[in-house]
């Protein structure tokens, strides 16, 4: 890839942001457990190159090493670490596949609860950072037209070339008002800002449903039908993207590749419902991938 002046300029903001991070005040205590940092222990985990600077600064060594990264995937469809009943039961999915950053164990459950229910939004950038490694792995996994090692390396370098847009699972207005934020939107915008991808606000939650976490499996499956709708602005954005996508160098397919973000993937019914609405309404060929923070 040639280093044009323009690309240098594009890198500048990122460089400044990194430099500013070095100067940024950081809390002396771990954001999760509240214990003071042990600098020696933090240094020990510095070897984990895939973790961002911010992540290593904000969490203590013990909390960092307790993160159950989902690196070995058993179900290529839903990204679970163990073989998966749901994907055997209903093999037809509207989205291509799901990948998750971590396994949803009690520690991660506590972390998500701290962020989502307690409302500690300081954790948002951390959860967002945790998506980076899995996003890059997912990009490398994409079926490329020329699957040489060199091409794969290029994909690692700039994943932005392989994706057209990022969107997220919406929450209802009532929930947004109560909680003050949409966790999926925050994660999506964090990811989009980091890789400089367009974030599109296409989906709306049409009706207010009970919290998913209080429902059984079959209830979830039933309730997510007709839960989402599409907004007109989003439709236009997708159209513009479809005309723009043909110009991208690394792609040959005529599909618009969209990444759908959510905080947690349990049965996949939410992701499925969103993907269906997107596909039906978009009036353009879509290829939908799902990226979630945790896989239960």
């Amino acid at each position: 890839m040639k280093a044009s002046p323009l690309s240098w300029l594009q890198r500048l903001p990122a460089a400044f942001a990194t430099a500013a991070q070095l100067l940024a005040p950081r809390s002396a205590v771990c954001l999760l457990c509240g214990k003071p940092h042990d600098s020696a222990r933090s240094a020990a985990t510095a070897g984990q190159a895939k973790l961002t600077f911010q992540l290593r600064q904000s969490l203590c060594g013990a909390c960092l090493s307790a993160i159950p990264w989902l690196t070995r995937i058993a179900c290529s469809r839903c990204g679970r670490g163990i073989p998966c009943d749901d994907c055997i039961r209903s093999p037809q999915r509207t989205f291509v596949c799901n990948r998750s950053a971590v396994r949803y164990n009690p520690a991660m459950k506590a972390m998500l609860a701290l962020y989502k229910y307690r409302g500690n939004e300081q954790l948002a950038p951390l959860l967002g950072d945790m998506l980076f490694p899995v996003f890059e792995a997912m990009t490398a996994e994409l079926p490329l037209e020329v699957s040489t090692a060199a091409k794969r390396k290029a994909a690692m370098r700039n994943p932005a070339d392989y994706w057209d847009a990022i969107t997220y699972v919406p929450v209802s207005t009532e929930r947004a008002r109560e909680r003050g934020f949409n966790q999926a939107e925050q994660l999506a915008s964090h990811l989009a800002a980091h890789y400089r991808l367009p974030l599109v606000h296409v989906l709306l939650r049409a009706r207010h449903s009970e919290k998913q976490s209080f429902k059984s499996r079959s209830e979830r499956m039933r309730d997510t039908k007709a839960l989402f709708s599409f907004n007109e602005v989003g439709l236009n954005t997708i159209r513009i993207l479809s005309s723009a996508s043909s110009e991208k160098s690394h792609k040959v397919s005529e599909f618009i590749r969209i990444l759908l973000i959510d905080d947690i993937y349990t049965t996949g019914s939410t992701a499925e419902a969103c993907a269906q609405v997107l596909k039906q309404q978009a009036q353009a060929p879509l290829e939908i991938y799902v990226l979630t923070w945790a896989r239960s």
Binding site: E121, A176, R179, G180, F181
Partner: peptide, 8 residues
């Protein structure tokens, strides 16, 4: 204090 965009 931590400042964020608030939907409420």
């Amino acid at each position: 204090l931590h400042r964020t965009a608030c939907a409420a």
